[in-house]
Computed example of a mutant assay.
Amino acid sequence: MKKLIALGFTALLGFSGALHAAEYKIDTAGAHAFVQFKIKHLGYSWLYGRFNDFEGRFNYDPAKPEASTVNVTIKTASIDSNHAERDKHLRGKDFLAVDKYPTATFKSTSFKALGDGKAELIGTLTLHGVSKPVTIAVTEIGGGKDPWGGVRQGFHGTTEIALKDFGIDYDLGPASQIVELTLDIEGIAQTMM
């Protein structure tokens, strides 16, 4: 019984130690983070894709979630819809114009905890040379120590953007104007605050 209590106490200490404020680097090197999208193709099916090259950091303190910040940079040429010819078209002037706009960025302006692991993240998305506010629905996946002595924190986010809001007006029909974004982010603590 004493051993069980000691194990429980140790686990509690380990858990509470992971609950400190920290700056996290998004774990793209280990492929534990994803920026994915889907859009209707002519209204007949879903087209899925992702961006393979991005980086970012976030600050998170579970005791003061409203102080959280997020900064992400995406290399637009890394778009991948699993079809080389389509990706070439998406990189061109009709869509992302990656030669002119090689990056897209997101910088948070506020984070509002809604309870039960849910939150609302608001920030500025700059895409195709246009900056607009976006709201991301966030769910905390979890956080704590990893097997290598680090501390990790993960979130899932979703939002929708209208292509025309960002100056992309290639006509794929009325059912193909909205892009759904799914963001799965796992960060590794760099500094405890």
Rank of each mutant, 00 (worst) to 15 (best):
M1L: 10
M1K: 10
K2F: 09
K2R: 10
I5C: 06
F9N: 01
F9A: 14
F9G: 04
T10G: 13
L12F: 13
G17Q: 02
A18M: 05
A18W: 07
A18L: 05
L19N: 10
A21G: 14
A21T: 04
E23D: 13
E23A: 07
Y24V: 10
Y24H: 09
K25Y: 10
D27H: 01
A29W: 06
A31R: 14
F34T: 12
V35T: 03
F37I: 04
F37N: 00
I39V: 15
I39R: 05
K40D: 09
K40I: 02
H41K: 13
G43E: 11
G43M: 09
Y44F: 15
Y44T: 11
S45G: 02
S45I: 08
W46S: 15
W46T: 08
W46M: 15
R50D: 02
F54Y: 09
F54T: 05
G56F: 01
G56T: 01
G56D: 10
R57M: 13
N59Q: 10
A63Y: 03
K64C: 05
K64D: 08
K64Q: 14
P65D: 08
S68Y: 04
S68F: 01
S68V: 03
V72D: 00
V72R: 01
V72G: 04
T73D: 09
T73W: 04
I74K: 05
K75S: 11
K75M: 11
A77E: 15
S78A: 07
I79V: 15
S81W: 11
S81V: 12
S81A: 15
H83T: 03
A84T: 12
E85T: 11
H89V: 12
L90S: 02
R91C: 12
R91W: 03
R91F: 03
D94Q: 03
D94I: 02
T103W: 00
K107D: 11
F111Q: 00
F111A: 04
K112P: 04
K112V: 13
G115E: 06
G117C: 08
K118N: 13
K118P: 07
G123I: 10
T124N: 15
L125I: 04
L127F: 09
G129I: 05
G129E: 12
V130L: 06
V130N: 09
V130Q: 11
V130C: 11
S131W: 08
K132R: 15
K132Q: 15
K132A: 02
P133C: 05
V134L: 10
I136H: 05
I136Y: 07
I136E: 05
I136W: 08
V138K: 10
V138N: 09
E140H: 10
D146E: 07
W148M: 12
G149W: 04
Q153N: 14
F155C: 07
H156S: 12
G157M: 03
T159W: 04
E160I: 01
F166K: 02
I168G: 07
D169N: 14
D171G: 02
L172P: 02
Q177P: 01
I178H: 05
V179E: 02
T182Y: 06
T182C: 12
T182R: 10
L183A: 00
L183H: 06
D184H: 03
D184E: 13
D184G: 03
I188M: 12
I188H: 03
A189G: 11
M192Q: 14
M193I: 14
